[in-house]
């Protein structure tokens, strides 16, 4: 965890510095002298953020010196990578393929990742659930989900 704290502090500090650069590009608009403009609040927060990330880094360095091991990883790595990748592909396909088509594939992949080994069930559920959701939102709530290639 101590190493992660250092990584976190570095990433957050880099984010803060990037934000600080962006703040410099904001226009100085104030209605009265000595009153805060649009850059005021982000500047205060970035300053606090950088100070806190420095504290986190320092605590991480101290902890590493006294460290006896690393924290447990909660992330199931390969399944997580596939799931996140599938989600990304699903979102990319959504505007073109529409909700139903893209959801069928995505749903099937997720069912498999969550441990379902019955391919018939996967096929049935992967078609039934997206169609049911689309119909419910289209005709029940009057919300038209992306149609893409399928016009309903």
């Amino acid at each position: 965890m101590a190493r992660r704290n250092i990584v976190a502090s570095l990433v957050i500090a880099a984010f803060g510095i990037w934000y600080f650069v962006l703040i410099q590009e904001l226009p100085e608009r104030t209605s009265m002298p000595n009153t805060p403009g649009p850059a005021f609040f982000p500047t205060v927060i970035v300053t606090v953020l950088l100070a806190l990330s420095a504290i986190l880094a320092a605590s991480g360095v101290i902890a590493i010196r006294n460290s006896t091991g690393t924290g447990e990883s909660w992330l199931p790595k390969w399944q997580a990578t596939i799931a996140v990748g599938a989600f990304l592909a699903f979102l990319a396909a959504l505007p073109f393929a529409g909700f139903i088509l893209s959801s069928v594939v995505f749903f099937a992949i997720l069912m498999r990742l969550y441990g379902c080994r019955n391919w018939v069930l996967i096929a049935c559920a992967a078609i039934a659930v997206p169609v049911a959701l689309f119909t419910l939102f289209r005709y029940g709530f009057q919300i038209v989900l992306p149609r893409g290639l399928v016009s309903l």
């Binding site: 995505f106 997720l110 069912m111 659930v129 959701l133 939102f137 919300i143 038209v144 989900l145």
Partner: peptide, 28 residues
């Protein structure tokens, strides 16, 4: 069965964020 419940929730996340303003931007 979680293998039915969790993928359904994943789809509802997408639908929920899309239907807020009918925008793909919100989904991303």
């Amino acid at each position: 069965p979680k293998h039915l419940l969790l993928p359904s929730i994943a789809l509802l996340c997408v639908v929920g964020s899309y239907s807020l303003r009918n925008s793909f931007f919100d989904v991303y």
